[in-house]
């Protein structure tokens, strides 16, 4: 087990954060959850996260804007996009803007954990993904 990953989850659906926080904590992530993109951006300005997970379709500032902001602020941070409105054009746009990965809702917690593990590997601090698998059995 390496050092903990700082993860920010932003989704205007409160349940997403509420349920993903314990799910990601199991694989060694320190998770902060937000439902409002403005507050999330403020926090991102304060602190450099390892991973930002954001919904795309949100009031005021959408996920793509958050993505641009994060990429501009810290090239190191991996941004994972979630959306219920998955379409090829949005997916390509997100990737072009520097997203690390893109996942369509609905997804299983394990799907996201796999992506987080991939991101951790890319960040140079691999995590023990099997920790969650143990709980899954």
């Amino acid at each position: 087990m390496s050092e903990r990953l700082d993860v920010l989850i932003l989704d205007d659906e409160p349940i997403v954060g509420k349920r993903l926080k314990p799910a990601l904590a199991k694989i060694g992530c320190e998770v902060e959850i937000f439902v409002n993109s403005n507050e999330a951006l403020d926090r991102i300005n304060e602190k450099e996260f390892d991973i930002v997970v954001t919904d795309i379709r949100m009031e005021n500032i959408d996920g793509l804007q958050v993505l641009e902001h994060v990429v501009k602020k810290s090239g190191r941070t991996k941004v994972i996009m979630l959306t219920g409105y998955a379409m090829m054009a949005v997916a390509r746009e997100a990737m072009e803007k520097g997203a690390f990965d893109f996942i369509a809702k609905p997804f299983k917690p394990d799907d996201l954990r796999k992506i987080i593990a991939k991101a951790a590997k890319a960040l140079g601090s691999p995590i023990d993904f099997n920790a969650s698998d143990a709980g899954n059995d």
Binding site: E13, A23, G84, Y85, K108
Partner: peptide
């Protein structure tokens, strides 16, 4: 597309319930 949001909430919650 709009259905995906509640569906996602259900999926995540159900999986976490099963897990924990």
């Amino acid at each position: 597309h709009e259905l995906n949001n509640p569906l996602n909430n259900i999926t995540i919650t159900a999986h976490m319930l099963l897990e924990d």
